[in-house]
């Protein structure tokens, strides 16, 4: 066997990546590189007029209050969902893992929202929360709980929590399924051994089971991060293109959409396409750094655990 042949054999498997690599490069990487080039000009997305402005679009985004407010809302949504998933999600997964009767029925139902589109989810919750056709407030007042009724989506305090509830409703199934599969990896003998040692249920869970759930914790955290930095549809359907009220639900997704395609149908005077692309590039870089950091940090914790 010559050196060349050995080389070929050594890297032989990499040829399998080629067909996928072609699709990936042509339809994803190449458009992205083009987008980078669009982010350094000043262009409204339609006309002829475009001039090279270097990093001005990035500078403007990084010094704009609107950008940071939107990014902050993304982070708040991410953290809130994360808490919900690691508490309620984990709790429900543990309940299901105890294999109660009808376990599969429960599991089927609890995972159902995940397969609904975010547009459908948005409409479902419009029906519940809308100030005009929402059924929650009339229901609360009819059963004598009128004091709990709130102007959910049009109140500066309640709008963002409402969006979070809807997003959590849509995504909780992930946490349940991921944690369930993690729990299945916990050997029964280990828990039984702990039981013999006299540990109660909570101690058993906290000291024996939970550390073994680290891989589930890691994937769930990363998935949640990616999903919630990109959140768009739910916000767009529930509170509209400008993140009503008064920007309280504006997220990066709506900001980019508004800049790229406008918020009002009657005029496009506010469209700044290349600025939108620049913000999208910033989101990409931010996600790249954060997910790498998250993965690295969480993996290290796993190893230590």
């Amino acid at each position: 066997m010559t050196a060349l042949q050995r080389r070929l054999r050594q890297y032989g498997h990499l040829w399998f990546t080629l067909p996928g690599l072609v699709f990936f490069s042509v339809f994803l990487v190449y458009p992205m590189l083009t987008a980078f080039r669009l982010s350094v000009v000043d262009w409204n997305g339609l006309g002829n007029e475009s001039r090279f402005v270097g990093l001005d679009n990035f500078r403007e985004a990084l010094t704009s209050v609107t950008f940071y407010r939107a990014a902050w809302h993304n982070i708040v949504i991410f953290l809130a969902i994360l808490v919900v998933q690691h508490t309620i999600g984990l709790f429900l997964a543990v309940q299901l893992n105890a294999r109660p009767r009808f376990m599969e029925v429960y599991r089927t139902i609890l995972f159902l929202p995940v397969i609904l589109s975010l547009v459908a989810t948005g409409f479902i919750w419009t029906l519940i929360l809308s100030p005009n056709i929402g059924i929650l407030n009339p229901f609360l007042s009819d059963i004598g709980l009128g004091f709990l009724a709130q102007p959910w989506l049009n109140d500066i305090t309640w709008a963002l929590p409402s969006v979070i509830v809807v997003q959590a409703w849509n995504h909780l199934g992930w946490a349940i399924v991921i944690y369930m599969s993690g729990l299945q990896n916990v050997p029964r003998e280990l828990r039984e051994a702990a039981q013999i040692d006299g540990a109660n249920g909570w101690q058993r869970f906290w000291n024996v089971t939970f550390p073994l759930l680290s891989p589930a914790f890691t994937s769930l955290t990363v998935i949640t991060f990616i999903q919630n930095i990109r959140v768009f549809d739910v916000v767009y359907v529930l509170t509209g293109p400008i993140g009503s009220p008064a920007g309280r639900t504006d997220v990066l997704g709506t900001l980019v959409y508004r800049m790229a395609f406008g918020a009002a149908g009657v005029t496009s005077a506010d469209i700044r396409f290349s600025y939108a692309i620049a913000i999208a590039v910033l989101i990409f870089i931010f996600m790249l750094i954060c997910s790498t950091g998250l993965l690295y940090g969480l993996r290290r914790r796993e190893v230590e655990a």
Partner: peptide, 19 residues
């Protein structure tokens, strides 16, 4: 390949259309 998960779709839609 995996970092492809992070690409925001609004960013590539116009170049994709041209392509």
């Amino acid at each position: 390949f995996v970092s492809g998960l992070l690409i925001p779709v609004q960013m590539i839609i116009l170049p994709l259309f041209v392509l």
